[in-house]
């Protein structure tokens, strides 16, 4: 093995692999994605009356009490900042985790004075990505009385809306049942507008 030959092999192998795996492979996959799942490949954007109203996969912030609220988000500078996903990374015994949760529970109770049920834990803990689009069905049902009261809708209609939006486990086995907060709120808005 002479030195020049060795260097030629090194450099040409690296360049060949870079073209193959760095350009050809992603380009082939992008072409495939555009042909087969064009919407999903570009972020599952949902349009309402031609306006692009968010992505079915990325959560949005909701703070007005007449909407269903999603998970707390630890992204900065504002919650649900999709350009900088982040979790809180607070340890389980960190005092500020405790303080944040107390505050979130207080806000929930303040907006729904009659409700003294235990708060489902996912509603007051920050998600891993800060962009979690879902809450548990329990967390959605917990909010039904508040949303129904503030929107002047019958409680069982709102409850039925939530039930229809529950996505179950595939094969009843993997992951968890969940409700997409953005989709739920879009439907809620439409229902309220029809009234």
């Amino acid at each position: 093995m002479n030195m020049l030959q060795f260097i030629r092999t090194l450099i040409s192998l690296l360049l060949l692999f870079s073209v193959l795996f760095g350009l050809v492979y992603p380009a082939v996959m992008t072409g495939f994605a555009r042909l087969t799942f064009p919407g999903k490949a570009r972020g599952s954007v949902i349009s309402v009356n031609v306006i692009e109203m968010g992505s079915a996969l990325i959560g949005q912030p909701f703070s007005r009490p007449e909407f269903f609220w999603g998970r707390p988000s630890a992204t900065t500078p504002q919650p649900y900042n999709a350009t900088a996903s982040a979790g809180s990374n607070l340890g389980p015994l960190n005092v500020s985790l405790n303080e944040r949760i107390i505050e979130r529970v207080a806000v929930l109770r303040e907006n729904d004075p009659g409700n003294s049920l235990p708060v489902p834990v996912d509603l007051v803990t920050a998600s891993g990505s800060g962009l979690d689009p879902h809450i548990s069905p329990a967390a959605a049902f917990y909010q039904v009385p508040r949303v129904a009261r503030l929107r002047g809708l019958p409680e069982d209609r709102v409850r039925r809306l939530v039930e229809e939006q529950i996505e179950n486990r595939p094969l009843d086995l993997f992951g968890e049942p969940r409700v997409n907060v953005l989709l739920l709120n879009l439907l809620l808005k439409r229902m309220a507008e029809k009234e």
């Binding site: 015994l93 985790l97 949760i101 235990p118 489902p120 834990v121 996912d122 998600s127 969940r178």
Partner: peptide, 21 residues
């Protein structure tokens, strides 16, 4: 550490976890 704050922790320790998982 969150016992007594009025939570239902049946889903487990959800800080930093995603609901779909």
């Amino acid at each position: 550490a969150l016992v007594g704050l009025g939570l239902d922790q049946a889903a487990g320790n959800m800080e930093g976890k995603e609901v779909r998982f």
